[in-house]
């Protein structure tokens, strides 16, 4: 996607210069470089009206961007200007149950009960976190243990999701958390930490969308999808050349009450 051309076409040469300056700042930043690469490699946003409008909105915001902090500005703008989940719809025949491998710490920090009346267990030690995840979060009482209104959200905030039908093939039950992270294109944790498989149905959390550069933000292992792709991919870190990967779509953030019972993966 040529953001500078979009800027010039819609807002003139000043806007083009603003975009160029921002992209240069991103390029000079360790994290930002990844985000800039995703934007340049983006092929699907321009293919439909909602995507085109999202790109134009970003350029419009860029015209008044304060100097400095290019990466945090990008994250804040994606969220504040509602730029996530603006790719084309994923192919209908892919619609199925979805899942997301996530850190136990993310569950504890973002999905637990946080407001009174509150009964969140205090974490005396790592064993207590593990026990809570295994026996409470990943059990039939999960909707009582977590805050049903807490929002399952990615960082930008599209929720990267894998098809549950792919799970058995790529990360069958018993696969270590380290391998699971690799297969879904996330860096394995060091030190290892307990992780949980969140599960949800497209009918509850959809629409299901092909991920774009805006969804990926600075996701190091995201691969920009080819034009007209039916789904996205992230690099399979288990293959040396990075050419493998699992199928990924994104869904908008959704409340815990729409999740199915999570599954404990391990550490």
């Amino acid at each position: 996607m040529d953001l500078e051309a979009i800027a010039e076409n819609h807002f003139g040469v000043d806007a083009k210069a603003r975009v160029a300056a921002w992209m240069a700042e991103l390029d000079a930043d360790l994290e930002g470089w990844t985000g800039a690469s995703h934007i340049r490699g983006e092929n699907n946003l321009q293919s439909h009206d909602e995507g085109r409008q999202a790109a134009i909105r970003l350029v419009n915001e860029l015209r008044s961007r304060p100097p400095g902090d290019p990466v945090n500005w990008y994250f804040a703008t994606i969220t504040g200007s509602n730029l996530a989940c603006k790719g084309p719809k994923a192919a209908d025949d892919l619609l199925d149950d979805l899942c997301k491998v996530t850190s136990g710490w993310m569950v504890w920090n973002r999905l637990r009960r946080r407001t009174a009346p509150d009964d969140t267990p205090a974490l005396r030690d790592s064993a207590r976190l593990m026990n809570w995840l295994v026996n409470v979060v990943c059990g039939p009482a999960y909707l009582d243990a977590l805050d049903p209104s807490a929002i399952v959200s990615g960082k930008v905030p599209a929720v990267f999701s894998t098809f549950l039908r792919d799970r058995d093939a790529q990360l069958p039950a018993g696969t270590s958390a380290t391998e699971c992270y690799k297969v879904v294109g996330l860096d394995p944790r060091d030190p290892p930490e307990p992780c949980v498989l969140l599960k949800y149905r497209t009918s509850q959390v959809g629409p299901v969308i092909v991920p774009t550069a805006f969804d990926a933000g600075t996701h190091t292992h995201f691969l920009p999808s080819a034009a007209g792709a039916r789904y996205g991919t992230t690099k399979n870190l288990a293959t040396a050349d990075g050419s493998g990967g699992v199928r990924e779509v994104v869904v908008p953030p959704f409340p815990v009450s729409r999740m199915m019972e999570p599954e404990f993966i391990g550490a």
Binding site: S103, M106, K155, L186
Partner: peptide, 22 residues
Amino acid sequence: PVRVPFDLEPVEFLLSQVHSLS
């Protein structure tokens, strides 16, 4: 600089790195 994994908030990454170092 600290490189926080894509899917974590800074506080979650910090806890994952220090909580078990009893």
